[in-house]
Amino acid sequence: MKRLPLPLIAASLLTVVALLPAPAAAWGRLGHRLVAALAWDDLSPRTRAAINELLQGEAEPTLPGIANWADELRDQDPDLGKRTSKWHYVNIAEDGCRYVQAQHCPNGGDCVVEAIRAQTAILADRKQPKAARQQALKFVVHFIGDVHQPLHAGYGHDKGGNDRQVNFNGKGSNLHSLWDSGMINAAGLDETAYLQRLRAMPLAVTMSRTPLPPASAEWAEASCAVVVRPGFYPAKAVVGEDYVQTWRPLAEVQLRRGGAQLAATLNAALGR
């Protein structure tokens, strides 16, 4: 049997790796930036000043600029990324979308619900070192975006839709990635245009009367309620425009809600 030259084998392996699906991250880069930008609209002057001070020295010292930091840890700080990987989600759909800490987040708060609470407490504590509060801000901005992506509070058996394969626009994907970015990117809008679209939407959300600690369990349960709606899981592997037209408006509602809840949380933590 004729052996292939080593360079050809290496090139073939790289091609295979490139075709493998990457781990999904809630909302993708655009979605997280949109949530952060929407939140900035509703921040008090005092909160904005506190955020500007905390973000001094960042490459892009804005809320959108740090919104994807927690996902980028996998490359920038693999150890921290691994230790915090479970902070991005909680699996409650198998249990009627009712969050019970002892059942769903028993190991020291390793889920998005408790991570939001813990990191918000660090952010609000002015006795904490600046570096700790800066990191907490980055986590809070990202995780509040995460918890409003429905599949980050969905089923555990399919890893939040990551194991549910779909074909969208002629390309293989999974349901989680479709909700992260596929439907949003298919709108064909850049960040500025999408912000205008979301800002024009009515704010269909009831704000918590006691924003601290954040009502992250309620947010997770509301996201889960989307996942269990009839038709959320497409009947066929090939996802068409009808699915997008039905579900993208709801994804946009979740983005809008995420921005509002992030703003309320930051104002409560930093605006005092």
Results as ranks from 00 to 15, higher is better:
Leu198Met: 11
Thr265Ile: 12
Ile92Gln: 04
Val253Ala: 13
Gly172Tyr: 08
Asn107Arg: 15
Val100Gly: 01
Asp79Trp: 15
Tyr89His: 15
Ser44Arg: 12
Leu195Gln: 07
Phe143Tyr: 15
Ala24Gln: 14
Lys159Ala: 11
Tyr243Val: 11
Gly108Tyr: 12
Leu212Lys: 09
His88Ser: 11
Arg29Asp: 14
Arg117Ser: 10
Leu123Ile: 08
Gln134Asn: 09
Val141Leu: 02
Ala225Leu: 05
Asp125Ser: 03
Glu191His: 11
Leu250Ile: 13
Tyr99Pro: 13
Thr47Met: 01
Gln56Ile: 10
Pro45Gly: 12
Arg29Glu: 15
Ala264Glu: 11
Arg272Thr: 15
Gly31Val: 03
Gln134Tyr: 01
Phe168Cys: 01
Met201Pro: 02
Met201Asp: 07
Arg199Ala: 13
Trp87Gly: 04
Gly109Glu: 10
Gly240Cys: 11
Ala136Val: 08
Val113Asp: 08
His88Thr: 07
Glu191Trp: 02
Asp163His: 15
Ala136Glu: 06
Glu252Asn: 13
Gly259His: 03
Ala37Tyr: 01
Val35Ser: 10
Gly96Ile: 01
Ala93Asp: 05
Leu43Cys: 03
Glu114Phe: 01
His142Phe: 14
Gly271Ser: 10
Val239Met: 02
Pro214Arg: 02
Val147Asn: 09
Lys127Asp: 14
Ala10Gln: 09
Val166Met: 00
Pro249Arg: 05
Glu241Val: 09
Asp79Arg: 15
Ala269Ile: 00
Leu20His: 08
Ala67Phe: 01
Glu191Pro: 04
Ile116Met: 11
Gly57Asp: 08
Ala131Tyr: 03
Asp190Lys: 12
Gln76Cys: 08
Gly160Phe: 00
Thr210Cys: 08
Pro21Lys: 04
Ala102Ile: 10
Ala50His: 00
Asp42Pro: 04
Lys159Met: 13
Gln135Ile: 08
Ala124Ser: 13
Leu151Ala: 04
Ala22Ile: 10
Arg117Ile: 14
Ala70Cys: 12
Ala251Tyr: 06
Ala215Gly: 04
Leu14Phe: 11
Trp247Ser: 01
Ser44Pro: 04
Arg256Phe: 06
Tyr194Thr: 07
Ile144Ser: 00
Leu189Val: 08
Arg199Ile: 06
Tyr89Gly: 04
Gln128Ala: 15
Ala25Val: 10
Ile51Met: 00
Asn52Tyr: 09
Tyr89Trp: 15
Ala93Phe: 11
Arg133Ser: 06
Ile9Pro: 06
Ala59Gln: 14
Thr15Phe: 12
Asp95Gln: 07
Thr246Tyr: 03
His32Asp: 09
